[in-house]
Simulated assay, not measured.
Amino acid sequence: MPTSIITTDDLQDFKMELLQDIKELLNQQKSGKIKKYLKSAEVMDYLKISPGTLQNLRIKGILPYTKIGGIIYYDASEIQKVMEENRVQHLEY
């Protein structure tokens, strides 16, 4: 099986894509097209990420969540807060 090397640029690109997807999710929430609380499956479907990636975002404290019984919920407004705190602005030369 071929081996792939992941560079820091690859990780930065992934981060930017992920943050853009979260931003779009929050824009839908603001327009009333999305619920206030999202289940894990809904977040994974929208962001097109795996369960492992979502779990890593929780473990690392990137995405806040609430667990009631065995169900994990994500507050869309909290995701908006994460988006604003992690916004990266590129300087143009």
Rank of each mutant, 00 (worst) to 15 (best):
M16F: 08
L91V: 15
D21L: 11
Q12Y: 14
A76N: 04
L57V: 04
Q80Y: 09
Q12F: 13
D13I: 09
T7K: 05
I6Q: 04
I79V: 14
I72R: 06
M16H: 09
Q12I: 14
L63W: 15
L19D: 08
K35T: 12
L18C: 03
Y73H: 13
Q80V: 07
E92L: 14
D75R: 05
T66L: 11
G61R: 01
H90T: 14
V43L: 00
K81L: 05
G69M: 07
Y46F: 15
N27V: 13
E84Q: 09
P64C: 01
Y74D: 02
E84G: 01
I72C: 06
G52R: 12
L38W: 04
G52Y: 13
I34Q: 08
L25H: 05
T7P: 01
Y93C: 07
T8R: 06
V43I: 10
L63H: 07
I49R: 02
P64K: 01
D45A: 10
M44V: 08
S4L: 15
L38H: 02
Q55G: 00
K15P: 00
I49E: 03
A41Y: 14
V43E: 02
I72V: 15
Y37H: 06
G52C: 05
Y46P: 00
G52E: 14
I22P: 00
K23L: 10
N86G: 02
Q28S: 08
Y74H: 15
G69H: 09
D45T: 12
G69Y: 08
D75W: 06
I62Y: 10
L19V: 14
K15S: 13
V43S: 05
I59A: 07
K67R: 14
E85G: 03
G69L: 07
